[in-house]
Design a protein around this nucleic acid. Structure first.
Lengths: 249, 249
DNA sequence: CGCCTAGTTGACCAGGTTCAACAACGGTGG
DNA sequence: CCACCGTTGTTGAACCTGGTCAACTAGGCG
């Protein structure tokens, strides 16, 4: 119950992320580092939680990528979010018993599992952390809303550009992005399932973005060749991420 | 700061709604009833909060309908949720300073305004209420995700049927729905903006639903002539609303 | 009665889907 | 080091859901 790891102590990505919206005191950071937890590794495509499950732990991402999704039919999936280091992938389960959607690994990944009761205890003991968790959950809500706007009202080109801007920004917060480059393990099919498009169309649109000199993809890496152009196309305004001005673009 | 009202005390819809997912003790219910608040009325189309605002109160709906939305262009709006009695329309502002979207009245409505500091105090003092608020916020998140699934992967017919099922269920929780009938003040244009469709298409699809004998609309009232059929078309599964089994369909 | 908003209908158009085939890539085992 | 295989990406052609434009009708309210 107290297995430890490199990525929990050095540069803990949860602290890094919470700091980006809230700012934590030294005490609060220590309390997070001292949370009893177990590190668990997953393979790509492995299920982290499935619809109908009643988890007793919640999962903090340390490395890798994951997504939330729901199946609509045998062959129709809607991905509702992508997650990387620092995300608490199922805070939901701390308060609502049953999972109403599934979560799966997109790449090999590493999670810290924390018992629900320890989370409850942490939130009760340190109101500052409670506020940080609230903010984090509300920002996630804001991201869902932004995706809603995208799927509902933006063209395929804007949608794809927008999600790239969003992930680039989220990656920067946890130090995975040097400004123009970051790891991009998402397949075009996955992107399609996230944006309500077909993989064929995603492929064509990405072709356009490349052709217009906005982006490049090489070896699972995303390169923003023209970050300003990409943001302009997407009409990307990061306000909804509620980042500390020091961290924001 | 302590104006009172009929609908705050008798049958308080916030308590009614929180009870539907969480269950509150007598003490907790009393604490809510004793919250210092001001009642304010709005006209249809009046703004409750606008993007960029930094509210110092949060708003609990007592009567009427409201929606959350974001403009994408001059003539393109995405509605992200509908709200009725019992909804805390901007819990978000308790924790995040700046509004990242707007909220407007769809009908004449009545709100209870509560100072943020009083909400903070309430949450700190009564952990049970804190849990109830968490659940409420997480259910709202789940609703955003469900809309995402709808806009992303459901046909126009399913989408419209689904939103009708959802609102019928939410209305039932706060006693606005006798099972098959409830007030429906939403225009087809508003529905279109919520579902990522055009109003012309919404009109045609609603025509189909009427033609198939599933629904009727008369004098701003929705009638589910064939509730089972409607649910089947929508593939509506209310799990994501996390209702107490006693309340659920 | 007249006005304004919401609902209705038709004709045409386009963004994105589907189906199908093929090419490129990366990892594996010999 | 290469041959093989499964996955991911790429491309073309036909099709279709839903959008746009525009005009007209029906209600609700002063």
């Amino acid at each position: 119950m107290n297995a430890q790891s490199q990525s929990w102590f050095s540069n803990n990505p949860l602290i890094q992320k919470l700091n980006a919206t809230t700012g934590l005191t030294e005490t609060e950071q220590q309390a997070i580092l001292q949370l009893p937890h177990v590190i668990r590794e997953f393979q790509a495509d492995e299920a982290i939680a499935e619809i109908g499950d009643r988890p007793s732990v919640c999962s903090i991402m340390l490395e890798g990528w994951a997504c939330r999704y729901k199946m609509v039919a045998e062959d129709s999936r809607q991905i509702m979010s992508f997650h990387l280091a620092g995300d608490i992938v199922d805070v939901q389960s701390v308060f609502l018993k049953t999972m109403d959607h599934s979560i799966a690994a997109l790449t090999p990944l590493k999670l810290a599992l924390v018992q629900h009761r320890d989370v409850h205890e942490l939130l009760r003991r340190l109101p500052g952390i409670s506020v940080a968790f609230w903010r984090d959950a509300l920002v996630e809500s804001a991201i869902f809303r932004e995706w809603l706007v995208g799927i509902g009202r933006r063209t395929a080109h804007q949608r794809i550009a927008h999600v790239l801007c969003e992930m680039a920004t989220k990656a920067r917060v946890v130090g995975l992005n040097d400004g123009y480059t970051f790891p991009w393990p998402i397949t075009q099919t996955e992107l399609a399932d996230a944006l309500g498009l077909s993989s064929v169309h995603v492929n064509r649109v990405i072709g356009d973005l490349k052709g217009w000199g906005l982006v490049t993809f090489s070896r699972k890496t995303f390169v923003a060749d023209d970050w300003k152009g990409l943001k302009a196309l997407a009409q990307f305004d990061p306000d909804y991420l509620h980042l500390d001005p020091r961290v924001a673009a």
